[in-house]
Design a protein around this nucleic acid. Structure first.
Lengths: 132, 132
DNA sequence: CAGTATCCCGTCCGATACTG
DNA sequence: CAGTATCGGACGGGATACTG
């Protein structure tokens, strides 16, 4: 496949396909939940403990969206106290590879991006360089 | 690298590295702009024509953020009428590969995800199935 | 234990109008 | 041509309080 044909996977149909997954993993907690569930079936509280900073509200929301996407299963056990297990589906597991690819890119290029922010912001704060 | 070690690229430091790039490509027009600039240096108007639906405002914003990240260069030519050329930097070009990887995943799994939405929403609209 | 409900703020995004 | 200014709606996300 040529380079142009590859970018068509992004541009094709106005990028509708890639948008739908970006609308999901663009959310703050999604990838953290998926990566954490890579360790196997897990309960709500255990997930919350393993993901520092996530609130009950946001963990619930994130899990519901992933369940709706068919990337995570939610299993309620009829017990007292209630026990709910979350687990990646087969499809959910396939998401990890491309996510890791992106994470590798991020880890490699973030330092440069942050340096770029610094210099860009410094330039923006200055009056534009003028001749004379 | 083990599967666990790979997901650490996502979970490491609370996912700060991957968040910064997701905060960029999570935005609606970013990847479309990057993929379009893969064709080479381009003017503002040409970009706008090649990206259906983007407004002047959003194209400007997107390009500024990409410039700040050091993924795109902005070159103003001192002419009348003004001519401004945008081009991917070396770093910007390296983003295309992981983006394509994600797009491939999206194209492959979107049909299943949309079917999942349909059945999930149908279930949610129904009263929960009860024994008896 | 595993959620819901409510409030509130910031940002994304679109639409529209104006300019060096 | 390549922007900027302003307005308004929608949504993500944090904090807090309540519940089967």
């Amino acid at each position: 496949m040529s380079s142009y044909e590859k970018t068509c996977l992004i541009r094709g149909d106005g990028g509708r396909a890639i948008r739908s997954i970006l609308d999901r993993i663009g959310n703050k907690w999604t990838l953290l939940v998926v990566a954490t569930l890579e360790g196997g079936s897990m309960r709500f509280t255990e997930l919350q403990q393993r993901i520092p900073g996530v609130s009950q509200r946001m963990l619930t929301r994130t899990l519901r969206l992933l369940e709706r996407d068919g990337l995570v299963t939610r299993t309620v056990h009829a017990e007292v106290p209630p026990r709910v297990e979350y687990e990646l589906t087969a499809t959910g597991r396939t998401l990890i590879a491309p996510a890791v690819t992106l994470a590798e890119w991020a880890v490699e290029h973030n330092p440069g991006i942050e340096r770029s922010h610094t210099s860009f912001d410094a330039r923006a704060a200055q009056p534009p360089p003028d001749v004379g």
